[in-house]
Computed example of a mutant assay.
Amino acid sequence: MNSPSERVQLVFDTTLGPMHLAASPRGLAGAWFAGQRHAPAQLEGAHAWPLAPEHPLLRQARDELQAYLQGRLRVFSVPLDLSSGTPFQQAVWQALLHIPCGQLQGYGALAAQLGRPSAARAVGAAVGRNPVSVIVPCHRVVGADGSLTGYAGGLERKQALLRLEGVAQHEQRAGQAPLWTEVTA
């Protein structure tokens, strides 16, 4: 695992608000919206990772994220460093990378895919701690009935990302989260 002290960062504006990117010597180690839950303390303050706006990997990640948010990119190629999590979290984050753009998967189905069918809550916790928002597509995970559940970057951003990918929102039932389904052409 890389030491967090080896990281550098870049802050930039997106259509969904400011984002912080962090790179380690191994790859992109973080992408967080400003104010996102579970973001590391090293993004701001006296102990913040150094800003490196000309770092090639951070520039690549920024450019790919901007292209994605403009609807011009569907698959990211920036190298990732997902070593900050536990082995279980890393397995969940790797599984997220296999959910194609514009498709949804439930927490229970993701748990079953990992060979842990009774671990939907643990999968949900790992999804919520995903350090590389958008690029590792935790926004594509929904409740078993298609309802939106928590998103560390905020449900409004999750909704915007799903709409960007062409996933449709269905009429909300009273007292329940919106339902989402994949759009088939």
Results as ranks from 00 to 15, higher is better:
His38Ser: 07
Ala39Arg: 15
Pro40Lys: 09
Ala41Trp: 11
Gln42Cys: 07
Leu43Cys: 10
Ala48Ser: 06
Ala48Asn: 09
Trp49Val: 05
Pro50Cys: 12
Pro50Leu: 10
Ala52Asn: 04
Pro53Thr: 09
Pro56Ile: 02
Pro56Lys: 10
Leu57Phe: 06
Arg59Asn: 06
Arg59Tyr: 01
Arg59Ile: 07
Gln60Tyr: 02
Gln60Ser: 08
Gln60Lys: 15
Arg62Tyr: 01
Arg62Gln: 12
Asp63Leu: 02
Asp63Ile: 05
Leu65Asn: 02
Ala67Gln: 13
Tyr68Asp: 04
Tyr68Val: 08
Leu69Lys: 06
Leu69Ser: 08
Leu69Thr: 07
Leu69Arg: 07
Gln70Thr: 10
Gly71Arg: 09
Arg72Phe: 04
Arg74Phe: 01
Arg74Leu: 02
Arg74Tyr: 00
Val75Pro: 09
Ser77His: 11
Val78Met: 08
Pro79Tyr: 14
Leu80Asp: 04
Leu80Tyr: 02
Ser83Tyr: 09
Ser84Tyr: 02
Thr86Lys: 03
Thr86Ser: 06
Thr86Leu: 01
Pro87Trp: 13
Gln89His: 10
Gln90Ile: 12
Ala91Glu: 15
Gln94Ser: 08
Gln94Asn: 08
Leu97Phe: 00
Leu97Thr: 09
Leu97Val: 05
His98Ile: 05
Ile99Trp: 05
Ile99Arg: 03
Pro100Asp: 13
Cys101His: 08
Gly102Trp: 06
Leu104Thr: 04
Gln105Val: 07
Tyr107Phe: 13
Gly108Ile: 06
Gly108Trp: 04
Ala109Tyr: 13
Gly115Lys: 11
Ser118Met: 15
Ser118Cys: 14
Arg121Tyr: 14
Ala122Trp: 06
Val123Leu: 00
Gly124Leu: 00
Ala125Arg: 14
Ala126Trp: 11
Gly128Arg: 06
Gly128Phe: 05
Gly128Ser: 10
Arg129Asn: 07
Arg129Gln: 05
Arg129Pro: 03
Pro131Phe: 02
Val132Thr: 06
Val132Ser: 03
Ile135Cys: 09
Ile135Ser: 12
Cys138Pro: 01
Cys138Val: 09
His139Ala: 06
Val141Ile: 12
Val141Tyr: 00
Ala144Ile: 12
Gly146Lys: 10
Ser147Phe: 14
Leu148Lys: 15
Gly150Pro: 00
Gly153Trp: 00
Gly153Pro: 09
Glu156Thr: 14
Lys158Arg: 12
Lys158Pro: 01
Lys158Tyr: 01
Lys158Gly: 04
Gln159Met: 11
Ala160Asp: 14
Leu161Asp: 01
Leu162Val: 02
Arg163Ile: 00
Leu164Asp: 01
Leu164Arg: 05
Val167Ile: 10
Ala168Glu: 15
Gln169Thr: 05
Gln169Phe: 06
His170Arg: 07
His170Tyr: 04
Glu171Leu: 02
